[in-house]
């Protein structure tokens, strides 16, 4: 909030030249584009690093599930009985 004080020697308001220094329509449009465009221009899977990461995750998941399945199969295999 503004707090006011009486000042006989108040400085004049900024003049046209000073105000124009801050005027930048190009920057406004740039900020507008940043504000309105989505974060990712490409889908995640089309970015090489993310793609490799996703492939590794999928391979690891397959490997883990394969190992788990193998272990399960070994456990549940029927035990040979001696005659």
């Amino acid at each position: 909030m503004s707090k006011y004080k009486f000042d006989k020697n108040k400085k004049p308001l900024p003049d046209d030249a000073e105000i124009s220094k801050y005027k930048d329509f190009g920057k406004l449009v740039h900020n507008y584009q940043r504000a309105t465009k989505p974060l990712y221009h490409k889908p995640l899977y089309k970015q090489p690093k993310v793609f490799i990461f996703l492939v590794i995750v999928v391979l690891l998941a397959l490997l883990i599930s394969h190992l788990a399945e193998k272990e399960e199969r070994e456990k549940s295999a029927p035990v040979e009985q001696k005659p």
Binding site: M1, S2, K5, D7, K8
Partner: peptide, 14 residues
Amino acid sequence: FRKNNKHATVPLDE
């Protein structure tokens, strides 16, 4: 002003 919990001192003349 609310976000920064601040106030500005603004001079006023005659």
